[in-house]
Design a protein around this nucleic acid. Structure first.
Length: 202
DNA sequence: TTCACGATTAGCT
DNA sequence: GCTAATCGTGAAG
């Protein structure tokens, strides 16, 4: 898929799309396209796996620690990027949900690469197969060149954006426990597209 | 100021 | 399955 086809087949959601319950946003982001306009050209991938992190009764969410310099964007207006560094090595990308003032965000966990795949391969030199380029939360930020500079940016303004397909295909959504957390591990807040080769785990 | 740890990944056994 | 790599954050002193 090239940049022109991408523009014709997708559209930007309105703010209200993000100003909904986190779980709804997490489900509806499946099948959407994440796009980053980088110095090395356009990078885009289809979202195939997400996790919801809630504002209340979710001890695994970063916002559970309350409002801090790091987590403040989660409490702000929806449709913005919450980027954080993990293990001092990697970055993870979240999309802020819920109305302004209420915490809640969606971790993007895996993408199916669509545009700029050659540049993604260069940024993800260890990936042998295309399925390995963005099949994990820190893999996709590396592939898409997403770093702390995008913290707090508005996904309705770019350079980092999310677009929805104009003709929504029917997607079979699977639900499971979240990956790699210890607290609130009993919650089923991971969503992914069934039978998809690009998810981090089946 | 100190300290333990984490929404991960890659490489090796 | 196990572990190193590597550092900002938040809690405690």
């Amino acid at each position: 898929m090239n940049a022109h086809e991408l523009k014709l087949s997708t559209h930007l959601p309105v703010r209200a799309f993000y100003a909904r319950p986190t779980v709804e946003v997490a489900k509806d982001l499946l099948g959407a396209v994440l796009i980053n306009r980088t110095d090395e050209g356009l990078a885009a991938g289809r979202i195939v796996e997400t996790e919801a992190y809630l504002g209340q009764a979710d001890h695994a969410a970063h916002s559970a620690a309350g409002r801090t310099p790091r987590t403040q964007v989660i409490y702000g207006p929806p449709g913005h990027a919450y980027v954080y560094r993990i293990y001092g090595l990697h970055h993870c990308l979240n999309v802020v949900a819920e109305p302004d003032g209420q915490p809640g965000c969606v971790l993007i966990r895996a993408l199916e690469p669509l545009c700029g795949i050659e540049a993604m391969r260069q940024r993800r030199a260890t990936a042998r197969k295309v399925e390995d380029i963005a099949s994990g939360p820190a893999k996709l930020t590396a592939a898409m060149a997403i770093q702390m500079g995008l913290y707090g940016t508005d996904l309705l303004m770019g350079p980092l954006t999310v677009r929805l397909f104009n003709r929504a295909q029917r997607i079979e959504v699977r639900r499971s426990k979240r990956i790699g957390i210890s607290r609130s591990r009993e919650l089923d807040l991971r969503f992914f597209i069934a039978h998809n080769d690009f998810v981090s785990r089946r």
